[in-house]
């Protein structure tokens, strides 16, 4: 197992201390909200990175897993009075099962066909939820208001507990991603990314490891979905099952640097504050100018800095050596 370099450990500790201390130092609802969104999308980026960054399966349908997570815990809570924490795990399991069901037959679909298949899958899920009476179709579900507390996964007076919960979930996903990247599976996935045929020739079960990656990714994304439902307390297909969320998962990873553990976190830390702040400053009138800037940013980054921020930093490191 590869050991971490001292500066990497120092960086991890510094990042952890800074994020734990943040809500104690900075007071106010908006900064906390922005940070929660950063962590939420960092987590989804980490999940996307496991399949997209390591195994080069560029999914544009991860929002389906996000939606499945959000809906599972909410429906369990509303109809069967199941605790959201159990719903969190149940949503993850259901999403992983859905990922296996869709991923297995799709296992010989590659590159662009795969990307489009994921969009098609997510769109089918969206259309289904939009017309499904059992989950109130397009009306959406409002979560019942329970007494606040950790046990109910619900807080009304402050956002700080949400902040720590999502931070813990993000840390958990990072550990999973790190574990994958240093064990056999990570090497297998990277081998598959470099060359399908060679990996197959070396005896790597291509179908099985691709499927594992998709399922783990789906599980983490679904947990993010449950968190979102508990945080916003209202879900409908137009807020948890739309294509832009999938795109966001891809973008944070790409901006930060795909295939590296910290990439999605860096990407989310840059992109989410920009999008939240431009939305609040410029988007209040629905002028579209916030999304315009966002689109331009994506164009320019991928055209002129395609390795992402992490790639840029490491390339500086190599040059100075």
């Amino acid at each position: 197992m590869k050991k971490l370099a001292p500066w990497q450990i120092a960086l991890c500790v510094a990042a952890l201390v800074a994020s734990v201390a943040f809500p104690l130092v900075v007071k106010g609802t908006f900064p906390n909200h922005v940070m929660i969104m950063v962590f939420l999308f960092a987590m989804m980026g980490v999940a996307w990175n496991i399949m997209g960054g390591y195994a080069a399966m560029f999914s544009f349908g991860n929002v389906a897993f996000f939606g499945i997570g959000a809906y599972t815990s909410t429906v369990l809570l509303m109809n069967y009075n199941v605790n959201p924490w159990i719903g969190l795990v149940a949503g993850g399991l259901l999403a992983a099962a859905a990922a296996a069901a869709i991923g297995y037959p799709c296992s010989n679909i590659r590159s662009h066909y795969f990307s489009i298949a994921t969009i098609a899958f997510a769109e089918i899920v969206r259309i289904q939820f939009n017309n499904w009476k059992f989950v109130a179709a397009a009306e959406g579900l409002s979560l019942p208001i329970l007494p606040e507390g950790f046990r109910n996964f619900m807080f009304h007076s402050t956002k700080i507990p949400y902040y720590y919960i999502i931070l813990a979930l993000l840390a958990l996903s990072l550990v999973v991603c790190w574990y994958i990247s240093v064990t056999r599976m990570g090497y297998y996935l990277r081998a598959i990314k470099e060359s399908h045929e060679l990996a197959k020739g070396m005896g790597i079960s291509f179908v099985r490891y691709r499927l594992y990656a998709i399922m783990i990714s789906a599980f983490i994304t679904a947990m993010a979905g449950t968190f979102y439902a508990q945080y916003i307390l209202y879900i409908d297909p137009e807020s948890v099952l739309i294509l832009p969320i999938s795109v966001q998962c891809v973008l944070v990873t790409m901006l930060g640097g795909a295939g590296s553990i910290w990439g999605p976190v860096i990407g989310a830390a840059i992109l989410l504050p920009i999008s939240e702040v431009t939305r609040v400053w410029l988007g209040a009138k629905g002028t579209g100018i916030d999304m315009m800037i966002y689109g331009a940013l994506i164009m320019l980054i991928s055209a002129y800095q395609p390795q992402g921020v992490w790639g840029y930093i490491t390339s500086i490191g190599r040059r100075t050596k």
């Binding site: 560029f58 973008l251 689109g295 991928s302």
Partner: peptide
């Protein structure tokens, strides 16, 4: 000539830009 991911994402940026330019 860049990485595969950039090739996939770049036109997404163009799409978001054009659609919202029209909104604006």
């Amino acid at each position: 000539t860049g990485p595969g991911l950039a090739q996939v994402v770049v036109t997404f940026g163009v799409s978001i830009f054009l659609a919202n330019l029209a909104v604006w």
